[in-house]
């Protein structure tokens, strides 16, 4: 029974939702600062770390995954030293919103499964 419910999986989805929400915030901040001189864009790293932790520890490691906000070294192509590119940000925004919806959908299905098990199992 415990195996079926797998609370670690729920934790993993929660973590991924947190990550996508934070990434949205960071991208929104990049977009808001599109015209701020000297601004350097930030991004969130999560996937590689998640891969590594899941590989080493399995689902149990989900809670330990660190979410890292970094400033990737992208060369500024504008005179004011701002390295935000509107196309990159909009693409990242769309991708991230989509991913968030996927995670939400996965979590929702997991809950539905648990619900079915309780009702019919």
């Amino acid at each position: 029974m415990n195996k079926l419910l797998q609370p670690e999986a729920l934790e993993l989805y929660e973590r991924m939702l947190d990550f996508a929400a934070l990434r949205h915030k960071v991208i929104a901040n990049n977009v808001a600062n599109i015209n701020t001189p000297g601004f350097r864009r930030s991004d969130v790293e999560f996937a590689d770390e998640l891969d590594r932790v899941l590989h080493d520890k399995g689902l149990k490691g989900a809670a330990d995954v660190k979410i890292r906000v970094t400033q990737p070294n992208v060369t500024a192509f504008r005179n004011d030293g701002n390295n935000v590119s509107i196309d990159t940000e909009m693409a990242a925004l769309a991708e991230n919103a989509m991913l968030y919806q996927v995670y939400a959908q996965l979590l929702s299905r997991r809950f539905r499964q648990i619900h079915d098990i309780i009702k019919e199992g």
């Binding site: 929400a21 949205h24 808001a32 599109i34």
Partner: peptide, 27 residues
């Protein structure tokens, strides 16, 4: 033009956030 595009980009960011929150409400 840059100000206008910047404004629009921010509006898009808000729409995406709205979509995400509405999806989270379906969980």
């Amino acid at each position: 033009m840059t100000a206008m595009r910047g404004y629009e980009a921010n509006v898009t960011a808000i729409s995406s956030a709205k979509q995400m929150i509405l999806k989270a409400l379906e969980i």
